[in-house]
Design a protein around this nucleic acid. Structure first.
Length: 546
RNA sequence: GAUCGCGUAGCUCAGUCGGUAGAGCAACCGCCUUUUAAGCGGUAGGUCCUGGGUUCGAGUCCCAGCGCGAUCACCA
C-alpha cells in the first residue's frame, strides 16, 4: 500500500516530463567509448573493432596457457564434494592437537582435524619453497599454507603462482603458524577457476561508488562489509517472512505486469505483450490484487516483491524496490500498526545505529496526528482553507489561491515532517481523507482517514490503513482522482473496473499496510544509501554492454 | 530536474605558482620454508573522462558535454 491515486500527480508529471525529455536527449547523444568491456577486463578500446589487451590480462592469459600446456591442468575446475565453508574449517581448529604437533616431529597419525575448502585467493605471499595465501568465501577468510615438501611438484608450482582472484580448492590438516594464525597446511591444492580480470587493490577493495555498483561481483569479495550487508539482507527478509507466517499470513504472488497500474500515484513503466498485442504496466503496487484475494476469501495475505516506479533516483529511491504489503481481514489500521511495531522490535533486537543516530526500537513508537504536526509547524488548522492558502502564499506557492487546499496541505506537510525526531520511530496518524482515497474515513469526521505513516530517521517506512470496502465510495474516490489529472497522466491511468466489481462482490473490513523492505534493510544494517542494500542498483547506461 | 563536489596506471591515491607524469598495491624477472597489507633487487605499465578555448607551454585556468556522488525536489 504504497501510496494513493493522488491529485499530486499533476505536479509530479511536470517534473517527470522534464526528466523524460532529458533521458531521450541523453540516449540520442553519442557517448565516449568507455565501455563495460573496459570495466570487466581492463582492456582498453582503441577503436570500434580492435581491442588491445592490457598487460595485466595478457599476463593472466599467458599463465593460463602455461598451466594448461606445461602442467596439463584444466583451469576451469569440476565438481568437488565434501567442501566445508572457511568459517567452519576455522572453527574445527583443535588447540590440543596443534600443541601436540608444535616443535616435535609429527606422530605417525596426525591428531589435527582435516578439512577440504574452496575459496577465492585474496592474498598471496610466496617465499621460495613455501607460500601462504588467504582464501575468502561468503563465510569469511582462512589462511592456507603450501609447502614444497608436502605437495606434488605441479601442485606446488600452481600454488606458488596463483593470482589474486583465482578460485582454488585445498585440503589438509588444520593447524596454526608460529604467529598463532589458524591455517590449513595443504597436502592437496588445485585451481578450479582462473580469474582473467585485473584485481582491485587488495587492501582497500573498490572504493569508487560507481565501480562498486557497476561491478558488484567484485565489490562483494573485495570490499570489506559488502558481503555482510547482503547476507544480513537475506536474513532480514527471511525473518520477516517467518514472522508473517507465524502470524498466520500466507504468502502470495500477484501480477507484476498489469493492464491497469493502480494502488499508488506513481508513474509506471510500460511494456508490451506481442501475442496479445497489448501494453502492460509494470506494477507500482500490488494493493488492488491483494484486496481481490480478501474478496476471494483469504483472511491474511502478504506479498514481498518488486514494485517499479518511473521516477527519480536518489539515496533513498531505486526505480525498482522491494515492498511487503499485507492485508488482514477484520483488522484495522491499529492492528497492523501494532503488528509492524513488534516486527521492527524483533528485527532490531534493541538499539541500532544509523549514521549519527542511535535508534531505539524497544520503546513504544512515538505517535502524533497529521493535523497536530501541521498545526505545530504552520500555526493553523489544516481544515481552515483560507488560513492554509495564506500560509502557502507566504511560502511563495504561485498556485496558493487556486489550488485545492488539501493539495496545499500536502505540499506544506513536507516541512512538518522535519519536525519529527529522526531518532524516534514515529507514527503519524489521522491523514486527511482527501489525500487517502483507498482508506476509510472516520465516522465522526469524514475529512480524516484511518491512515498512518511510519517515519524513522527522516524516512517514510510505510503506510497503514483501515481499508475502504464501500464500493460506492471507492468508485467516487477513483472518479474524483481521474477528473483532476492532466493529459499526460491520462494516457496510463484509468479506472480499474474489475477491482470495483470485486468490491461489489464484497470485501471484509480489513487492515492493510506496506513497508519498504530496502529501507528496513538500510535501518537494520546502518547503510544510509539504498544503493548499498540493493545488489544491482539501476545505473545510467555507460555505453557498451552495461 | 536544480545546486555543489569529484573523474590521473588494472586498483588505492599524490601532483605546489601553468613548466619533462609520481607513489603504494597488482603485474613481469630474480632471491627467499612460518608470512600476516611479507621482505629485498630489477623491469614494464598513462587518451590525466570527452571535445573545444586561453597560453610559448594545460593534469592544472575557462567553456560545453558525459559519468558518479552529496544535498534539494518527488516518492516507499
Amino acid at each position: 500500500m504504497s501510496g494513493l491515486l493522488r491529485p499530486r500527480i499533476q505536479f509530479r508529471c511536470l517534473h517527470q516530463s522534464r526528466s523524460l525529455r532529458g533521458l531521450s536527449h541523453h540516449l540520442s547523444t553519442p557517448r565516449p567509448p568507455r565501455t563495460g568491456w573496459e570495466y570487466r577486463t581492463g582492456m582498453s578500446v582503441t577503436d570500434s573493432t580492435d581491442r588491445t589487451e592490457s598487460d595485466l590480462v595478457a599476463a593472466r592469459r599467458a599463465k593460463l596457457a602455461r598451466w594448461r600446456d606445461d602442467l596439463g591442468i584444466d583451469p576451469w575446475g569440476c565438481r568437488v564434494d565434501g567442501l566445508v565453508p572457511l568459517a567452519e574449517a576455522r572453527s574445527m581448529f583443535d588447540e590440543a592437537a596443534a600443541d601436540a604437533i608444535d616443535g616435535d616431529p609429527p606422530p605417525d597419525t596426525d591428531p589435527r582435524p582435516r578439512a577440504a575448502v574452496a575459496g577465492r585467493v585474496i592474498q598471496h605471499r610466496a617465499m621460495g619453497k613455501l607460500c601462504f595465501m588467504v582464501l575468502r568465501d561468503e563465510s569469511g577468510d582462512l589462511q592456507i599454507s603450501c609447502s614444497k615438501a608436502e605437495l606434488e611438484t605441479s601442485s606446488f608450482k600452481l600454488a606458488s603462482k596463483v593470482d589474486y582472484g583465482d578460485i582454488i580448492v585445498a585440503a589438509g590438516p588444520i593447524g596454526r603458524t608460529k604467529r598463532g594464525e589458524i591455517c590449513i597446511w595443504a597436502d592437496r591444492f588445485e585451481v578450479h577457476c582462473k580469474s582473467l580480470a585485473p584485481p582491485p587493490e587488495k587492501f582497500h577493495g573498490l572504493t569508487d561508488a560507481e565501480q562498486r555498483y557497476r561491478r558488484r561481483y567484485v565489490d562483494m569479495y573485495a570490499t570489506p562489509g559488502t558481503m555482510e550487508t547482503f547476507l544480513r539482507r537475506s536474513q532480514i527478509v527471511s525473518e520477516i517472512r517467518r514472522f508473517m507466517e507465524e502470524h498466520d499470513f500466507i504468502e502470495v504472488e500477484t501480477p507484476m505486469m498489469q493492464p491497469v497500474a493502480g494502488g499508488a500515484a506513481a508513474r509506471p513503466f510500460v511494456t508490451h505483450h506481442n501475442a496479445l498485442d497489448i501494453d502492460l504496466y509494470l506494477r507500482i503496487a500490488p494493493e488492488l490484487y491483494l484486496k481481490r484475494l480478501l474478496v476471494g476469501g483469504m483472511r491474511r495475505v502478504f506479498e514481498i516483491n518488486r514494485n517499479f516506479r518511473n521516477e527519480g533516483i536518489s539515496r533513498r529511491h531505486n526505480p525498482e524496490f522491494t515492498m511487503m504489503e499485507a492485508y488482514e481481514a477484520f483488522g484495522d489500521c491499529e492492528s497492523v500498526m501494532s503488528l509492524t511495531e513488534s516486527l521492527f522490535r524483533k528485527l532490531a533486537g534493541g538499539t541500532v545505529a544509523f549514521g549519527d543516530l542511535m535508534i531505539d526500537y524497544e520503546a513504544a513508537f512515538e505517535r502524533t496526528t497529521y493535523g497536530d504536526l501541521f498545526e505545530k509547524t504552520h500555526g493553523c488548522d489544516m481544515r481552515d482553507a483560507d488560513a492554509v492558502r495564506k500560509v502557502a502564499s507566504s511560502k511563495g506557492f504561485d498556485d496558493a489561491s487556486t489550488k485545492d487546499p488539501w493539495l496545499l496541505v500536502e505540499a506544506l506537510f513536507d516541512e512538518a515532517e522535519e519536525a519529527i525526531d529522526p531518532s524516534r520511530p514515529t507514527w503519524v496518524t489521522d491523514f486527511p481523507a482527501p489525500l487517502s482515497p483507498l482508506s476509510r474515513p472516520h465516522a465522526d469526521d469524514p475529512s480524516i482517514a484511518w491512515r498512518a505513516e511510519l517515519f524513522i530517521a527522516g524516512m517514510e517506512l510505510g503506510n497503514f490503513y483501515t481499508e475502504l470496502n464501500d464500493p460506492d465510495i471507492q468508485r467516487a474516490r477513483f472518479t474524483e482522482q481521474l477528473a483532476g489529472i492532466n493529459d499526460e497522466d491520462a494516457a496510463f491511468r484509468s479506472l480499474d473496473e474489475d477491482f470495483l466489481d470485486a468490491l461489489l462482490v464484497g470485501m471484509p473490513p480489513a487492515g492493510g499496510f506496506g513497508i519498504g523492505i530496502d529501507r528496513v534493510v538500510m535501518l537494520m544494517t546502518g547503510n544510509t544509501s539504498i544503493r548499498d542494500v540493493v545488489l544491482f542498483p539501476l545505473m545510467r547506461s555507460d555505453g557498451g554492454s552495461e
